[in-house]
Amino acid sequence: MSEPTIGVLALQGDVREHLAALAASGAGPRSVRRAEELDAVEGLVIPGGESTTISKLAVAFGLMEPLRARVRAGMPVYGSCAGMILLADKILDPRSGQETVGGIDMIVRRNAFGRQNESFEAAVAMTGVDGPPVEGVFIRAPWVESTGAATETLAAYEGHAVAVRQGALLATSFHPELTGDHRVHALFTEMVRSAR
Protein backbone atom coordinates (compact mmCIF):
# COMPACT_ATOMS: atom_id res chain seq x y z
CA MET A 1 0.00 0.00 0.00
CA SER A 2 1.34 3.42 -0.91
CA GLU A 3 2.41 5.75 1.87
CA PRO A 4 -0.31 8.16 2.95
CA THR A 5 0.21 11.82 2.07
CA ILE A 6 0.11 13.77 5.30
CA GLY A 7 0.42 17.55 5.45
CA VAL A 8 1.87 19.65 8.24
CA LEU A 9 0.22 23.05 8.60
CA ALA A 10 3.27 25.27 8.03
CA LEU A 11 2.07 28.75 8.97
CA GLN A 12 4.24 28.84 12.10
CA GLY A 13 5.69 26.42 14.64
CA ASP A 14 7.81 23.27 14.84
CA VAL A 15 6.94 22.10 11.34
CA ARG A 16 10.31 20.49 10.55
CA GLU A 17 10.14 18.15 13.55
CA HIS A 18 6.67 16.92 12.55
CA LEU A 19 7.76 16.41 8.92
CA ALA A 20 10.71 14.32 10.16
CA ALA A 21 8.59 12.28 12.59
CA LEU A 22 6.01 11.55 9.86
CA ALA A 23 8.71 10.52 7.38
CA ALA A 24 10.10 8.14 10.02
CA SER A 25 6.59 6.71 10.51
CA GLY A 26 6.02 5.63 6.92
CA ALA A 27 4.04 8.66 5.76
CA GLY A 28 4.77 10.96 2.83
CA PRO A 29 4.89 14.35 4.55
CA ARG A 30 4.58 17.77 2.95
CA SER A 31 4.05 21.27 4.26
CA VAL A 32 0.71 23.03 3.79
CA ARG A 33 0.32 26.81 3.70
CA ARG A 34 -2.34 27.25 0.99
CA ALA A 35 -5.85 25.94 0.35
CA GLU A 36 -4.75 24.07 -2.80
CA GLU A 37 -1.98 22.36 -0.82
CA LEU A 38 -4.59 21.28 1.74
CA ASP A 39 -6.65 19.72 -1.07
CA ALA A 40 -3.71 17.45 -1.92
CA VAL A 41 -3.27 15.72 1.46
CA GLU A 42 -5.08 12.77 3.06
CA GLY A 43 -4.39 13.82 6.63
CA LEU A 44 -2.99 16.86 8.44
CA VAL A 45 -0.84 17.65 11.45
CA ILE A 46 -1.31 21.00 13.19
CA PRO A 47 2.08 21.54 14.86
CA GLY A 48 3.18 23.06 18.10
CA GLY A 49 3.66 26.81 17.94
CA GLU A 50 1.79 29.88 19.07
CA SER A 51 -1.93 29.14 18.69
CA THR A 52 -2.94 32.81 18.36
CA THR A 53 -0.44 33.30 15.51
CA ILE A 54 -1.44 30.14 13.64
CA SER A 55 -5.13 30.99 14.02
CA LYS A 56 -4.72 34.57 12.76
CA LEU A 57 -2.65 33.46 9.76
CA ALA A 58 -5.16 30.70 8.91
CA VAL A 59 -7.95 33.29 8.86
CA ALA A 60 -5.91 35.90 6.96
CA PHE A 61 -4.92 33.48 4.20
CA GLY A 62 -8.34 31.86 3.74
CA LEU A 63 -7.44 28.49 5.25
CA MET A 64 -9.84 28.43 8.20
CA GLU A 65 -13.01 27.55 6.27
CA PRO A 66 -11.33 24.91 4.05
CA LEU A 67 -9.82 23.37 7.21
CA ARG A 68 -13.23 23.19 8.88
CA ALA A 69 -14.77 21.70 5.74
CA ARG A 70 -12.11 18.98 5.54
CA VAL A 71 -12.53 18.16 9.25
CA ARG A 72 -16.32 17.87 8.75
CA ALA A 73 -15.68 15.63 5.74
CA GLY A 74 -13.69 13.25 7.95
CA MET A 75 -10.05 14.09 7.18
CA PRO A 76 -7.82 12.74 9.97
CA VAL A 77 -6.04 15.55 11.87
CA TYR A 78 -3.49 15.38 14.68
CA GLY A 79 -2.69 18.45 16.77
CA SER A 80 0.14 18.80 19.31
CA CYS A 81 0.03 21.59 21.89
CA ALA A 82 -1.06 24.63 19.81
CA GLY A 83 -2.59 22.06 17.46
CA MET A 84 -4.69 20.69 20.32
CA ILE A 85 -5.98 24.21 21.01
CA LEU A 86 -6.90 24.64 17.35
CA LEU A 87 -8.85 21.36 17.32
CA ALA A 88 -10.90 22.30 20.38
CA ASP A 89 -14.52 23.33 19.92
CA LYS A 90 -14.01 25.76 22.78
CA ILE A 91 -11.07 27.54 24.47
CA LEU A 92 -11.30 28.79 28.00
CA ASP A 93 -10.72 32.58 28.03
CA PRO A 94 -9.73 32.84 24.37
CA ARG A 95 -7.86 35.95 23.31
CA SER A 96 -10.02 38.39 21.44
CA GLY A 97 -10.63 37.06 17.97
CA GLN A 98 -8.90 33.72 18.42
CA GLU A 99 -10.78 31.29 16.23
CA THR A 100 -10.30 27.55 16.20
CA VAL A 101 -10.81 24.93 13.53
CA GLY A 102 -12.69 22.86 16.09
CA GLY A 103 -13.92 19.31 15.62
CA ILE A 104 -13.15 17.79 19.00
CA ASP A 105 -15.93 18.24 21.53
CA MET A 106 -13.76 19.55 24.35
CA ILE A 107 -12.88 22.67 26.28
CA VAL A 108 -9.13 23.39 26.40
CA ARG A 109 -7.33 25.63 28.87
CA ARG A 110 -4.34 27.44 27.33
CA ASN A 111 -1.01 27.50 29.21
CA ALA A 112 -2.75 25.41 31.87
CA PHE A 113 0.46 23.90 33.26
CA GLY A 114 2.01 27.36 33.66
CA ARG A 115 4.62 29.54 32.01
CA GLN A 116 7.98 28.42 30.61
CA ASN A 117 9.59 27.98 34.05
CA GLU A 118 6.93 25.34 34.78
CA SER A 119 7.43 23.55 31.44
CA PHE A 120 8.46 19.94 32.12
CA GLU A 121 9.13 16.43 30.93
CA ALA A 122 7.33 13.42 32.35
CA ALA A 123 6.50 9.87 31.31
CA VAL A 124 2.91 9.49 30.14
CA ALA A 125 1.10 6.18 29.54
CA MET A 126 -1.06 6.54 26.45
CA THR A 127 -3.88 4.26 25.27
CA GLY A 128 -3.25 3.05 21.72
CA VAL A 129 0.53 3.37 22.09
CA ASP A 130 2.00 -0.03 23.02
CA GLY A 131 5.18 -0.46 25.04
CA PRO A 132 6.68 1.89 27.62
CA PRO A 133 5.11 5.28 28.39
CA VAL A 134 5.75 8.08 25.91
CA GLU A 135 8.21 10.84 26.81
CA GLY A 136 5.91 13.76 27.41
CA VAL A 137 7.51 17.14 26.68
CA PHE A 138 5.12 19.80 27.97
CA ILE A 139 5.94 23.40 26.96
CA ARG A 140 3.58 26.10 28.26
CA ALA A 141 1.16 23.29 27.60
CA PRO A 142 -2.63 23.29 27.54
CA TRP A 143 -4.79 20.64 29.18
CA VAL A 144 -8.27 19.40 28.41
CA GLU A 145 -10.67 20.88 30.91
CA SER A 146 -13.69 18.79 29.90
CA THR A 147 -14.81 16.54 27.05
CA GLY A 148 -18.07 15.54 25.39
CA ALA A 149 -19.47 12.01 25.27
CA ALA A 150 -17.85 11.16 21.92
CA THR A 151 -14.34 12.16 23.03
CA GLU A 152 -12.06 9.43 24.37
CA THR A 153 -9.29 10.36 26.81
CA LEU A 154 -6.10 8.49 25.83
CA ALA A 155 -3.77 9.88 28.49
CA ALA A 156 -3.97 11.92 31.66
CA TYR A 157 -1.35 13.66 33.76
CA GLU A 158 -2.02 14.72 37.35
CA GLY A 159 -5.74 14.27 36.80
CA HIS A 160 -5.94 16.29 33.59
CA ALA A 161 -6.58 14.83 30.15
CA VAL A 162 -3.50 15.45 27.96
CA ALA A 163 -4.27 13.20 24.98
CA VAL A 164 -7.70 12.74 23.42
CA ARG A 165 -9.28 11.20 20.33
CA GLN A 166 -12.62 11.74 18.68
CA GLY A 167 -13.10 9.72 15.52
CA ALA A 168 -10.35 10.71 13.07
CA LEU A 169 -9.13 13.60 15.26
CA LEU A 170 -6.22 13.17 17.68
CA ALA A 171 -4.70 15.75 20.03
CA THR A 172 -1.91 15.83 22.64
CA SER A 173 -0.86 18.56 25.09
CA PHE A 174 2.73 17.39 24.72
CA HIS A 175 5.24 17.31 21.84
CA PRO A 176 6.20 13.79 20.66
CA GLU A 177 7.85 15.50 17.66
CA LEU A 178 10.60 16.81 19.99
CA THR A 179 11.58 13.28 21.00
CA GLY A 180 13.07 10.41 19.04
CA ASP A 181 9.95 8.33 19.86
CA HIS A 182 7.65 8.34 16.81
CA ARG A 183 4.91 6.03 18.13
CA VAL A 184 2.26 8.78 18.31
CA HIS A 185 3.01 9.73 14.69
CA ALA A 186 2.86 6.05 13.75
CA LEU A 187 -0.57 5.83 15.42
CA PHE A 188 -1.73 8.87 13.44
CA THR A 189 -0.29 7.55 10.17
CA GLU A 190 -2.27 4.34 10.79
CA MET A 191 -5.42 6.44 11.39
CA VAL A 192 -4.89 8.12 8.01
CA ARG A 193 -4.36 4.74 6.34
CA SER A 194 -7.55 3.28 7.78
CA ALA A 195 -9.56 6.35 6.76
CA ARG A 196 -8.86 5.59 3.09
Binding site: L11, G13, D14, G49, E50, N117, A123, P132, V137, T179
Partner: peptide, 27 residues
Amino acid sequence: ASSASSASPETGTARVKRGMAEQLKGG
Protein backbone atom coordinates in the same frame (compact mmCIF):
# COMPACT_ATOMS: atom_id res chain seq x y z
CA ALA B 1 20.45 15.18 29.10
CA SER B 2 17.32 14.06 30.86
CA SER B 3 15.32 10.90 30.66
CA ALA B 4 11.57 11.16 30.89
CA SER B 5 11.25 7.72 32.41
CA SER B 6 11.31 9.06 35.95
CA ALA B 7 7.95 9.52 37.60
CA SER B 8 8.43 13.07 38.80
CA PRO B 9 8.32 15.92 36.30
CA GLU B 10 11.63 17.56 35.36
CA THR B 11 11.74 21.28 34.62
CA GLY B 12 14.47 23.29 32.92
CA THR B 13 15.82 20.41 30.82
CA ALA B 14 17.68 21.09 27.58
CA ARG B 15 14.75 19.62 25.68
CA VAL B 16 12.23 21.88 27.38
CA LYS B 17 14.42 24.99 26.93
CA ARG B 18 15.39 24.35 23.31
CA GLY B 19 11.93 22.96 22.56
CA MET B 20 10.38 26.27 23.61
CA ALA B 21 12.39 28.04 20.89
CA GLU B 22 11.29 25.39 18.36
CA GLN B 23 7.71 26.52 19.02
CA LEU B 24 8.62 30.10 18.01
CA LYS B 25 9.95 29.11 14.57
CA GLY B 26 8.49 30.85 11.56
CA GLY B 27 7.37 33.66 13.82
